[in-house]
């Protein structure tokens, strides 16, 4: 594991160095990335130019949801986003090259083509989150409320990361199915930018119990914002995000191992 993390750091470091060799080009792409990932927040602002509340939530509250989920998603995308390419590697056989190196394949795949420009989304999300905290008068919040914010972002990063890893594992069987992963990662991020009250109860139940995206922000955020939980779950569930994240990561780890084992026995 330590070996693997060291390898991850080495490989990402290599990519970072190669991008930084062209500083101007890099700065441009980060800025552009920052601006362009902000466009989906601009869409939300336009919506609120026409209405005062969406599903009963005000602009600042939606911004809070947006900021928490996008920061978590952005971090997961930065750290593990490259795993989306594993299907391609299986197809063209280049995964074999990684398998003969003395470091775990998982982290080699994760570090592949590490793109620092993805920081653009993270910083944009944190900016929106900061703005929402000001608007929501977070200065008057309790320490508990404050603590829940980093908890959401970190647990959310782990949950999205698990989805990336699980999706990558799925590609061992269906190499062309990279896009299914987008439904859960990008789709999940889009979903969680809006309040749960906008969606049908089945959908909310689905992303709570089946694909536990709701624990990225909905469940804990409703507590922070002092809102009622549409599913009426017991109160302690609001603090369950780290545990849920842990379970997700364990599940993804098992899926990855199974996928790799399958690949090594079929060599598809």
């Amino acid at each position: 594991m330590v070996d693997g993390l060291r390898a991850y750091a080495l490989i990402t470091g290599m990519w970072v160095r190669s991008t930084l060799a062209y500083r101007a080009s890099f700065a441009m792409t980060v800025v552009a990335n920052f601006a362009v990932t902000a466009l989906d927040f601009v869409a939300i602002m336009i919506m609120f130019g026409h209405v005062d509340a969406l599903g009963g939530f005000a602009m600042a509250e939606v911004a809070f949801l947006y900021g928490t989920t996008s920061a978590a998603f952005g971090l997961a995308d930065l750290l593990l986003g490259s795993m989306n390419g594993v299907g391609q590697r299986v197809r063209d056989g280049t995964l074999d090259v990684l398998l003969v190196r003395p470091v775990p394949v998982f982290l080699q795949v994760a570090a592949d083509r590490f793109a620092l420009r993805r920081l653009g989304r993270v910083s944009q999300a944190l900016l929106v989150l900061g703005w929402s905290l000001v608007q929501l008068d977070a200065a008057s919040w309790s320490a508990g409320q404050w603590l829940m914010v980093p908890m959401m972002v970190l647990s959310g990063t782990a949950i999205y990361g698990a989805l990336y890893a699980g999706g990558a594992a799925f590609q061992f069987w269906a190499q062309d199915a990279a896009e299914v992963q987008n439904s859960f990662t990008y789709g999940g991020n889009t979903l969680l930018q809006y309040p749960p009250t906008v969606f049908g109860a089945e959908l909310v139940r689905g992303v709570t119990f089946v694909v536990p995206l709701a624990f990225v922000n909905w469940v804990p955020a409703l507590r922070v914002l002092g809102r009622d939980d549409p599913l009426g779950l017991p109160g302690w569930v609001d603090f369950a995000s780290p545990a849920v994240a842990l379970v997700c990561c364990a599940g993804a780890g098992l899926a990855w191992r199974a996928g790799l084992r399958g690949y090594r026995s079929t060599g598809s």
């Binding site: 074999d96 398998l99 003969v100 084992r261 090594r264 026995s265 060599g267």
Partner: peptide, 13 residues
């Protein structure tokens, strides 16, 4: 296939 087994990429059956 043999080389892949020798290098540990594939598990022999």
């Amino acid at each position: 296939t043999t080389v892949k087994m020798l290098t540990g990429i594939l598990t022999p059956s």
